Computed example of a mutant assay.
Amino acid sequence: MEPNAVTKVVTDEIGITAKFMEDLKMFALTKGIDLIEAVILFIIGYIICRYIRKAVEHILDRSSVDPSAKTFISEIIFFFCLAIVVIVALGTAGVAAGTLAAAFGGIGLAIGLGLKDNIGNVASGIFILIFRPFRVGDYIQVGGNQGTVTDIRIMYTLISTLGNQMIVIPNSSLINSVIKNYSAFDTRNLEFTFDVGYDTNLPECITLLKKLFTEDPYVLNKEDLPIYVSGMAESSIRIYVRAQVDRTKYFDAQNELYIKVKEAFDKAGIDIPFPQVVVHRAKE
């Protein structure tokens, strides 16, 4: 390359660099302060939004609002306030109102298309809070999962299992599934099927079970306790009993009643058969 050409290239590069630095300087002088103000405003606004959320949670804790709605309401208010902070910060940065509206419209459309499932979760969360198929503290079963509802949030619901595991279920999945709420009523039914041998005296066995269940403090339906022979199996006769107990004492009652029945059967000499096969030897 000729010396004049090299000199020209170097001169052009220096000119471009100088122009860039000049433009950067002008931008810093004209927009730099606005950007710094916008960033500071956003940080302060974000902190204020978090304090507002905590204040709302504190107010809701002291009010009579259903526990199911507390987290949901506080998060909705938080994101609404945060959206206002973002708009104000962008306006401070020098973004025109028309440009801001168009940008938010495009962003909203993109978010709506890309996060349609999450929007469905939000709508489902609102549905849960309005129609209340369950509340925080209820013991429910959804599909193969069951546990106590610990929190209902914008996108999902948290369930704590008896094994001390946390299950996160999207709200849209809850609405589209069959929900079995064990806490919908103050009482729950304990259903028992006891297998006894074919040589058992059934009237005496039923009398024994009826006396045992009606004297137990956990059983609430002592006057109308359903107890009857429900069927004849291959190796046993089945007796059905349905006891109504306090839902908060369901497992305690189940444990105690099973133990009492087993002890009573052993004492009365009532056989509890197990599956067995009878083999007949053919005559020679």
Rank of each mutant, 00 (worst) to 15 (best):
V10R: 07
A110D: 07
L212Q: 09
I126P: 00
I84K: 03
V95I: 15
V6M: 10
S74A: 15
G163Y: 13
V10Q: 06
Y139S: 04
Y228P: 03
Y139F: 13
M26A: 14
G269S: 01
E2H: 04
T248W: 06
I167C: 07
I154S: 09
I59M: 08
D117Q: 13
V168G: 10
E234R: 15
Q254F: 15
A69Y: 08
F213W: 08
A233D: 14
D151E: 14
I76N: 09
Y139E: 06
F27E: 08
V261M: 10
T148N: 11
A55R: 12
A89F: 04
N121L: 11
C81Y: 01
R242Q: 14
N118Q: 15
G147N: 10
L115V: 03
F192K: 04
S64Y: 01
I175Q: 01
I16E: 01
T30L: 12
S68A: 15
C81N: 00
A243V: 06
D34G: 07
A69C: 14
S64F: 11
F131V: 11
V136Y: 00
G269T: 07
M26Y: 01
A243N: 01
S64R: 13
I48P: 03
A5K: 11
N181T: 03
S173H: 10
V142M: 02
L202A: 01
Y182P: 07
P217A: 00
Y198Q: 02
D61K: 13
F194T: 10
D61I: 06
D266F: 10
M232F: 15
Y182D: 00
N118Y: 13
R247Y: 08
K262Y: 11
L212T: 00
E256V: 13
T148I: 12
I272H: 03
P273K: 00
D66L: 04
R188N: 12
I43Q: 01
R242E: 13
I87T: 14
D216N: 15
S63F: 09
K8M: 15
R135H: 14
I272A: 06
V149C: 13
E263H: 10
S177L: 09
I227C: 05
A233Q: 13
N164T: 08
T200E: 06
V196D: 09
F185L: 14
Q276V: 14
C205E: 05
V229E: 02
D23E: 13
Q244C: 12
A97P: 07
R132K: 14
T7Y: 09
A253Y: 04
F127E: 12
D138E: 00
F185G: 07
L209F: 11
F79N: 12
V277E: 11
F213N: 03
I76P: 05
Y51D: 10
I76D: 11
